[in-house]
Amino acid sequence: MSGPAGRRPLSPHLKRLEAESIAICREVAAEFANPVFLYSIGKDSGVMLHVALKAFFPARPPFPFLHVASGWDFADLLRHRDATVARHGLRLIVHTNPEGAARGIDPLDSGSQLHSRVMLTEALKQALDAGGYDAAFGGGRRDEEKSRAKERVFSFRSAGHAWDPRNQRPELWNLWNTRVRKGETVRVFPLSNWTELDVWEYTRAERIPVVPLYLAKPRPTVVRDGLLIVRDDDRLPLAPGERPVVKSVRFRSLGCWPLTAAVESEARTLDAVVAEVRASRRSERAGRLVDADETASMERKKREGYF
C-alpha cells in the first residue's frame, strides 16, 4: 500500500492492527442504531479517529464525537480538538457536568477522586444518557493497566452503565456479539490489542497530528506529591515563596492538568518520542494521580462507568 509522499510504509504488525481496528469500527456502524465516539483528544483518541476515518472512506464516520470536558483540560488539548474537528468536518458534542460545575467541584480542593467521579464518570453517563447512545467507542488498550487485560473488545454494560466483570461475553474469533436490549449499552475498544509503542509508531508512520504536550518543551513546573505538574494556568495556587521551575518536559498520558504528571524529557519530535518509549523503564500511567489514589482504582472506576 503506497501512501502519500513522506509517509512510512506500515510494518505488517501495524497493518494488521490497523485492519483489526477498522473492522471493529465498521462492526459498530453496521450493528448499532446510535453509536458515539468518545473523543478525549489524546494520542489513543488520535489513532482511533485516524482509523475511523479510514474505515468509512470515502464517507465520513457515521457517528458524532463526544468530548467530556472537566473544565481542567489543558488549553493545548482544546485547541487541538477544535482544529481536528474543523479539519475533518466532524460533529462534536462537548459536555460538562453542570451540577458539578455549579457545586464548584475541582481537582485541587475537592480531591482527585471526587473530581474525577463527578466531572468525568458522572459527566460521561449524563452525556451518554442524553444522547441515547447504544454504543460508545473508547481508546482503552489492554496493555495499559492490569484490570484492562481482561477487557473485551465489545464490553457489555447493563442499563445504568455498570460493568460487571462476571457478566462479560466470551469473544471468539472476530465473531463479536453486538446484541443489546433497550437501555443496555456497549463500550467498544478498537485499540484493545495495541501497545503504547504501537500507538506511537503508527502515529509517526501515518503522520497523525498530536497535542503538542506529548512533545518535550520547556514548561513551568511545580512538584506536587513527588510528581511533576505543569502549571497550565494560574488556578493552581503556589506555596509561599514557591516559584514554578521551567523544565523540558512532556506527557505520556493526558488527563486533567493538575492531576497528570509530566516526565522530564528531551524528546521534541515523534522520532525521539518513539525512541524514548522504546527505552522507557516506567509505566505509562505512572503519571496519573487518579490511578494512584487507591489500589485497584481502575477496576473500581470502571464498575462505576469510567472508561
Binding site: H13, R142, D143, K146, S147, A149, K150, P165, R166, Q168, P170, S192, N193, T195, L197, D198, A296, E299
Partner: peptide, 30 residues
Amino acid sequence: GLEAEREQGITIDVAYRFFATPRRAFIVAD
C-alpha cells in the same frame, strides 16, 4: 493483581498480555 480478583471469582477469564522482540510482536492469551 489478578490473583486477588481470582479469589473473588472474577478472573475465570482470559487475560491478554503483550510483549515484543525485534523480530516479532506477541499477544499472550493467558
